[in-house]
Design a protein around this nucleic acid. Structure first.
Lengths: 336, 336
DNA sequence: TTGTAAGCGTTATCAC
DNA sequence: GTGATAACGCTTACAA
């Protein structure tokens, strides 16, 4: 048996309006009736029905989060931050796994719309026009996480990929390396593919190092296997490399595995730096030096921005989160 | 502007009852009015309000999933399966991150209760009496995932930890190893701590190998760092070990890292087998041989069981999922 | 300080 | 076939 506000009212001998006032911390009742009502609530174990509340308040205290994939520590670190901030704000998060599939994404958006969620965090994937238009019609705030859009005024939180990639490459250069390769993601990926390549190239240019297409491998994704394959190809094309910048930790660890198979010692013969600072980075052998994104904080930030928009509906600024080098053991000084 | 069934009714010149019948695929209207209504729906872009539906139907098509931690591939593989099956069943999942904290867990349960979710999946942690009683009062079905309880009739899905540990140990024995250590989790953990230790001991006994307390390290958790520390201690206590069974992949990979630091070659000088088959297992150097849990399938299974209970409220049987050895490179034959 | 009643957007039970 | 209308459990004017 689950009780309603009516049951409480009856038991406490007051009207439902009074009960409502009390559970919502409003004014307009005596201490005495408050006590009476609270006792009734206690006795029945009454808990208000959030569905009914949502219907009338037009606020479900639930947000939707869209992820292109679920089983990667990258996205779960983000989720972890989102969940924390959301729960602290008294809301819940519904996770949606879109698999980067347009049709699925639209289905999810429709579902979220029917559920009348309060807002949306859209992560790690390009915001297609179709998505944007639909969400605009839904009339709920949205923030982009680990992605951004140039076509529309949607606030986002991410690191500056170009800058972070520049920092990583520069780190290698500062260690004395001059022949530096790159294992990149998809160069047609405007969000996290191209900018990291550009950052790498910029850093080389700024230090008067030659750019050589042979020293760059383009992959379809950012996966471990892409990384394994890439290192082999890369070393075939440019055998004299002393260091490699990989555009993700998975790529980097794939490269380390490859190096191990090829009998190449990391970092003694080849330095490798990654990108992300996932938990696997510290678990690799050798532990991976990488440029860190503050993923959990980014998730929290995105959620907090969403709630800010929800509570004030004023425009909000995007955030470029700081990145930093986490130095472990996969990079060493080039001997001179 | 977001429209209601009333708007549709008005535009189509019918009553809201008729509209309701049509969007719910019931009978009792002509093809002609159906067409008229569908057109009105299309024109307005009407989408039914699931909140209102939930209020009257007493079904929110939302389930809650409780996780002790979020950022580990173990739990996200589970989540991935849960999310898939749930979405396929037309529902959504709310994730709750309890941090194994009793107070937090109760808060979450209360929240889920207020939201009137349809069911609960409780994962990877002991089901305390307090939780059980509360959920029982909520009067929604629950299934346990990667955990179980002896105190109450709650269906669960997990692998047989004792058996899986036995299999892992036996695998080592079959490779010719006789001096086999174990890096275990918490021996007071009745779900995944003790049973794996028992499985290890059983396997040794069944093969007439001596049991030696010095060959077992007990940890508080199952983490990478626990694994690193453990191997050092273990090797101090029992330097003649040729193989180690670690009770989780993280422990195993921590052990591998330690071995690397100590200059011990895996698998040439020391074989290591893990438990879980997380994605990090294939990414380690050398790739980790481990006993696999079908995590994604387990998640799907748990969700499907929940929906079965929801639709028929008959009792349902628990599932012991199959485990299997995934042989990679961290274990080799003992030379004779 | 308290209660009555309308309404949130649906579904379902009646009549017609 | 179709349409009023009463729920569902709550919040919130408006009265008293």
């Amino acid at each position: 048996m689950t009780f309603t506000i009516k049951d409480v009212a009856k038991l406490a001998n007051v009207s439902i309006a009074t009960v409502s006032r009390i559970i919502n911390n409003q004014t307009g009742y005596s201490e005495k009736t408050k006590k009476k009502v609270l006792e009734a609530i206690e006795e029945l174990g009454y808990e208000p029905n959030a569905v009914a509340r949502g219907l009338i308040n037009k606020r479900t205290h639930t947000i939707g989060v869209l992820f292109p994939k679920l089983s990667s520590t990258l996205v779960t670190d983000l989720l972890s931050g989102i969940e924390k901030a959301t729960h602290d704000a008294g809301s819940s998060v519904i996770v949606c796994h879109t698999e980067s599939n347009g049709e699925k994404t639209m289905k999810y958006l429709q579902l979220l719309n029917e559920k009348r969620i309060d807002g949306i965090i859209f992560t790690s994937a390009p915001l297609l026009e179709e998505y944007y238009q639909y969400i605009k019609k839904m009339n709920v705030p949205m923030v982009l996480l680990s992605t951004e859009t140039y076509a529309h005024p949607v606030p986002y939180v991410k690191v500056n990929d170009r800058h972070a990639a520049y920092t990583a490459t520069q780190f290698l250069i500062n260690k004395g390396h001059e022949k530096i390769g790159m294992i990149s993601g998809n160069k047609d990926d405007i969000i996290s593919g191209k900018p990291r390549i550009d950052g790498y190239i910029s850093a080389l240019q700024d230090h008067n190092l030659p750019i050589d297409e042979k020293k760059i491998i383009y992959n379809r994704g950012f996966s471990f296997y892409d990384g394994m394959d890439s290192l082999k190809t890369l070393l075939k094309q440019a055998p004299d490399l002393t260091a490699v910048f990989a555009a993700s930790d998975e790529l980097a660890i794939g490269a380390i595995s490859s190096a191990y198979q090829l009998g190449i010692k990391v970092p003694d013969e080849l330095s490798i730096i990654g990108y992300d600072n996932l938990s696997i980075a510290e678990m690799s052998v050798p532990p991976l030096t990488t440029v860190a994104q503050p993923l959990t904080e980014m998730g929290e930030m995105a959620a907090n921005m969403l709630f800010e928009m929800l509570n004030s509906d004023k425009l909000i600024e995007s955030r470029i989160m700081p990145h930093k080098i986490v130095e472990r053991k996969s990079v060493r000084d080039k001997e001179v």
